[in-house]
């Protein structure tokens, strides 16, 4: 389920010292293209599909897809990171939309 970056949405985290996707990828797979100043996954085959980059992207510019050899298109899973939850929008191949939520941190602790 490698991540792909939408060029119109990605701004290369221009105000951040370390762009989010570059900072969080456990495989060190994200880089900023020196020409376009936009992010890309330099080797999609190395990706483990943890979706951490997608969760953190402040512009929701990263789209994760199941590898086509494993599943047909279309279907989408769009995370939105909150303080203690991730809200996921799931759109299946029939166009049905589901809203799902994960608690990620217990209450009462700092984020």
């Amino acid at each position: 389920m490698p991540p792909y970056v939408l060029p119109d949405k990605c701004d290369g985290c221009k105000n951040e010292a370390d762009p989010w996707c570059v900072a969080v990828c456990p495989g060190n797979l994200f880089v900023i293209d020196p020409v376009t100043s936009k992010a890309l996954c330099r080797d999609p085959g190395e990706c483990w599909d943890c979706m951490t980059c997608t969760i953190f992207c402040p512009r929701q510019a990263i789209v994760t897809q199941v590898q086509y050899q494993l599943a047909p298109i279309p279907a989408e899973l769009i995370p939105r990171l909150g303080k203690r939850h991730i809200t996921w929008t799931l759109i299946d191949c029939k166009g049905r939309i589901y809203r799902l939520e994960n608690t990620i941190l217990a209450g009462g602790e700092e984020d």
Binding site: M1, D49, P74, W88, C93, Y98
Partner: peptide
């Protein structure tokens, strides 16, 4: 699906892609 989102979002998307 919620349970798999906690550890394997791939599975949730895979199920959605295959209906």
């Amino acid at each position: 699906r919620e349970q798999y989102l906690d550890m394997s979002p791939t599975t949730v998307l895979y199920w959605a892609a295959h209906d």
